[in-house]
Amino acid sequence: MNSYYKDFLIRDWQEGDRISASEVIRSVLAEYGLGWEPDGADRDVLQVEECYLATGGEFWVIEYQNQIVGTGGYYPIKRGEKAVEIRKMYLLPIVRGVGLGKYLLQELEDAIARRGFQQIWIETASVLAEAVKLYESNGYLPATGVETTRCDRVYVKLLTSISDTGN
């Protein structure tokens, strides 16, 4: 993955990104009064190779002026048929409000669809109001079965495969 949105580079995570990516996530969680859980909900960002890359997922970082300012990834889950969960979609406050979140979500969805997945699940917290608005305005439907302690919302989106559209 190597994509540009305005002055932002979205690229594949590299081993040297582990601390910077973790700091972005920890910082955004703290901004909203949510705790950093390195042994729980946030273990995946410390073990990207095991949790994302080895399972058939992807993990990306967003760079602006050579600094990591955001993250996003997905990996396959057993929750549904050909399903993935989008995880760790976080942007620092300085890069919000320019359409980057929507662009990142679309890029993730495109990558997921290209790999033949059919369902995308997302867990979030109501306090992350911008995220909730982003998901709801992009076709994610409320579902049940939250699995992450700090989250109180779960959404699902069904992708139409290319074969379904007759193309």
Rank of each mutant, 00 (worst) to 15 (best):
Y52C: 08
K82C: 07
A54W: 03
I86N: 05
G101R: 03
C151W: 07
F59N: 07
K157F: 03
V95P: 12
Q118E: 15
A54Y: 09
K133V: 08
N66G: 04
D110S: 14
Y103W: 14
G99A: 05
Q118I: 05
I62V: 15
L46M: 10
G57N: 09
L134I: 06
A143W: 03
G99Q: 05
E147T: 15
M89Y: 01
E63I: 02
E109W: 02
G99S: 08
P142T: 02
E123R: 06
G99H: 08
Q47S: 15
I94F: 00
V127P: 09
G72Q: 03
K82L: 14
Y155P: 06
R87Q: 14
A111F: 00
N138G: 02
D110Y: 08
N66L: 09
E58G: 01
K82I: 00
V95N: 02
G70V: 06
S161I: 01
T160C: 09
T160W: 05
I77K: 10
A113I: 10
L159Y: 04
K82M: 11
V69A: 05
E81F: 13
D110H: 11
L141T: 10
E85A: 12
L159E: 05
T148L: 08
Q119D: 09
N138V: 01
K88P: 11
E50Q: 14
Y74T: 06
L159I: 12
G72S: 13
Q106I: 08
L53S: 12
G101F: 04
L105A: 07
V98D: 07
A143F: 07
L128S: 04
E49C: 03
L100G: 06
V98P: 00
W60L: 13
G57D: 09
Q67G: 04
Y64P: 00
I62M: 13
E130W: 00
F117A: 04
K88N: 07
Y52G: 08
R114Y: 06
D164R: 09
G101K: 05
Y90T: 02
Y64D: 10
G145C: 03
